[in-house]
Simulated scan of single mutants.
Amino acid sequence: MNYFGTVINTIGITLAAIICVALISSLAAYPLARIRGRVTTYVYMFFVIGMIIPPFAALTPLYLFMRDLGLLDTYLGLIIVYTVGNLPLGVFFYTSFMKAIPVELEEAARLDGASFLKTYWYIIFPMLKPITGTLAIFVTLSVWNDVVNPLLFITTESKLTIMPAVLRFLGTYSVDPTQLFPAAVLASLPLLCVFFALSKQIVSGMTAGAVK
């Protein structure tokens, strides 16, 4: 099932999606957490509503949109799909976390002449490491375990991610346990290696902000 090729594809797409989701959602959450008003409240509610929309309801318009942009059967198209799909969760995470960061830190940066973007990049973003780690876990699981989106947006077999490759390897109408169990172990093996290597960081990220 082109194991190493599909694993490399999955890792690359996952890392790109994590970076895009972290940057875009944190930039969107920064003004939502600091500016109080009806407009920001409505924008925040708009993002939260995106979390309750069933993913399957957006497949058809998303496919047509990607077709019109010419991004079908490309890594970039699949990265955009995963980024957009995880943006509501990222905005929700970052907005809640940023509200607990003292405003005095930003005021001190402004007194030193830092602009809005410099304050975000040098003061706020480094403090978001725990929640970024938690968000990265959710994005990784959503990308790694996804079957529908790669099958819908990718047609070249060499560009597939790990789960669709496992599905094609097992077949459609019958499942052989002697093939199912080794394929399942191989599919989850990279995630297990990452978990054991970064277990301390993962646990600290998941428990960040639990006790105030």
Score class of each variant (00 low, 15 high):
residue 164 P to S: 11
residue 133 G to E: 03
residue 202 I to Y: 03
residue 114 A to N: 14
residue 85 G to K: 09
residue 119 T to Y: 05
residue 12 G to W: 09
residue 107 E to R: 09
residue 85 G to R: 04
residue 45 M to I: 07
residue 110 R to W: 13
residue 29 A to Y: 07
residue 157 E to H: 12
residue 133 G to M: 04
residue 167 L to N: 13
residue 164 P to L: 06
residue 106 E to R: 01
residue 45 M to Q: 09
residue 58 A to F: 07
residue 12 G to V: 02
residue 14 T to S: 14
residue 60 T to G: 03
residue 88 P to C: 02
residue 107 E to I: 04
residue 190 P to G: 06
residue 47 F to R: 03
residue 183 A to G: 11
residue 34 R to T: 01
residue 61 P to D: 06
residue 175 V to E: 13
residue 35 I to A: 12
residue 13 I to V: 15
residue 130 P to A: 03
residue 173 Y to W: 14
residue 12 G to P: 12
residue 75 Y to C: 10
residue 92 F to Y: 15
residue 9 N to H: 08
residue 4 F to D: 10
residue 2 N to I: 10
residue 69 L to E: 04
residue 122 Y to M: 13
residue 163 M to A: 15
residue 99 K to H: 10
residue 149 N to V: 09
residue 155 T to E: 11
residue 129 K to L: 12
residue 166 V to E: 06
residue 209 G to D: 02
residue 60 T to K: 07
residue 188 S to D: 03
residue 89 L to I: 05
residue 17 A to F: 03
residue 173 Y to R: 14
residue 200 K to F: 03
residue 43 V to E: 08
residue 23 L to N: 06
residue 104 E to L: 04
residue 69 L to R: 11
residue 179 Q to H: 12
residue 45 M to C: 11
residue 90 G to N: 05
residue 122 Y to P: 03
residue 46 F to I: 04
